[in-house]
């Protein structure tokens, strides 16, 4: 799937590894079960985790120092657990690696995902990055603190600096 970051499509260096496939010597995204069961002590290439929407970030806290990427998933666009997962990873666990949104993500959700600490999104084949970018910029005022939000304008308002 094409990967969107900072308004453009970027190359994806990561591979998703099925639970029964060997782990290649390149940046690899594994399931939680695989990460827990596999002996990865000698591995040098980067590791990523495909976080299930039902898994709470505290359950993976011990693994975080080893992870460079976590995917959070919207099984359907209206299933918003990923928003809270991303925020918890950044806010409570200080995770600084890539958080990638996957699944059924609408362009209309991209701005909010970013404000919850997500860094990249997998977009459908053929998606127009310009449309995602337009959608993201449509609203540049927000009323609540969030990750990546700018200094307050006054009252509860923040103009979004990162937009």
């Amino acid at each position: 799937m094409p990967l969107l970051e900072n308004g453009r499509l970027v190359a994806d260096e990561w591979v998703r590894v099925a639970d029964d496939a060997p782990v290649p010597d390149q940046p690899a995204i594994l399931s939680l079960a695989r990460l827990r069961s596999e002996d990865l002590a000698g591995r040098n290439a980067k590791l990523g985790l495909a976080l299930d929407p039902a898994t709470q970030p505290e359950e993976i806290a011990a693994l975080l120092p080893r992870l460079s990427l976590i995917t959070v998933t919207l099984p359907k666009s209206k299933d918003g657990r990923a928003f809270t997962q991303a925020r918890a990873l950044r806010e409570h666990h200080g995770f600084t690696g890539e958080i990638r949104a996957t699944g059924h993500v609408l362009p209309d959700q991209w701005r909010m995902l970013l404000r919850c600490g997500v860094s990249t999104v997998e977009v459908p084949e053929g998606a127009d990055p310009a449309q995602w970018e337009r959608s993201r910029r449509l609203v540049d005022i927000a009323y609540q603190p969030a990750l990546g939000a700018a200094a307050p304008l006054g009252l509860l308002r923040r103009r979004l600096e990162t937009v």
Binding site: K78, G80, F83, R115, C116, Y143, Q144, L155
Partner: peptide, 12 residues
């Protein structure tokens, strides 16, 4: 104000 387009709580 706080709940208007809240980034985290719009897809409850």
């Amino acid at each position: 104000q706080w709940s208007t387009l809240h980034p985290e709580f719009t897809w409850l």
